[in-house]
Design a protein around this nucleic acid. Structure first.
Lengths: 135, 135
DNA sequence: TATTGTTATACTCTATAACTATA
DNA sequence: TATAGTTATAGAGTATAACAATA
């Protein structure tokens, strides 16, 4: 087994650089990174509370407050499932969708700017890594 | 300018995968990711409160509580600067250093495990990216 | 005056445990 | 009984504003 400590350090450091960009972009919109992720998840899904918990790898009890706060800001809306009265579905509002689009643009701008001088073939490697990691 | 949205998405996703591993390892030691980073920063430094704020990109007022909690668990110690009475220096305790070593091993194990089947040349690309990004 | 660090305050995020409603 | 979601509670993390001590 080869020594990969340098590679692992680089990966950890890179993840913090990316998180820093996300934190800053979220702050521009007065949102947390978690709320930013939520908007991303809801872009092409209308999940249940439990499914959101699975996506974010958080306890279900944490999701109630998360959605409460997003709902209070008119970013998302709860509605009842028709097939199972226990289930609550969550979807983006128009406002939420619009904010999501703006955030996506901002992330592309900020992160794209940082990566301007990175070789295209190195970025292609990142795509392969994530395909291996989360297929 | 080429379309890099796929690459940017992959990079963001990768950063969340890494953060997930760090969150889990930190939780093994009943620590937050921020405390984990703090131990990493102090491994080869004895910074001032202000320098820690710079490293973590947090407000100085946030650092007081962070160090309070770490000190309460005997992971770090404050001591006064000899040259400037306003300044507080922070260093690892022996306990903190030992915990840091264990965390480092756990991250290597967990993250290394996840990356087992990733090509070495793709990991080398990550090293080049972070060198470009944070030289 | 400027800088270092702390405190008070308020909010978000998160988990655990206990609960209600529905299946 | 089992599952979906909520609430109460507690603690960490974070920023803003105001402050004291030192330079």
């Amino acid at each position: 087994m080869p020594d990969t400590s340098r590679e692992l350090d680089a990966l950890v450091q890179l993840s913090f650089e990316v998180q820093l960009v996300l934190t800053r972009v979220a702050a521009e919109f007065d949102l947390s990174v978690t709320q930013l992720r939520l908007l991303g998840i809801l872009r092409d899904r209308t999940p249940t509370m439990a499914q959101i918990a699975d996506f974010l790898q958080l306890d279900r009890s944490s999701i109630s407050g998360l959605i409460d706060r997003a709902e209070r800001r008119d970013l998302v809306a709860r509605h009842a499932s028709e097939s199972d009265a226990r289930v609550t579905l969550v979807e983006l509002t128009e406002t939420g969708r619009a904010v999501g689009v703006e955030i996506s643009r901002a992330v592309t701008r900020e992160l794209g700017g940082k990566l301007e001088h990175v070789a295209a073939k190195d970025l292609a490697a990142v795509v392969r890594i994530i395909e291996q990691l989360a297929p």
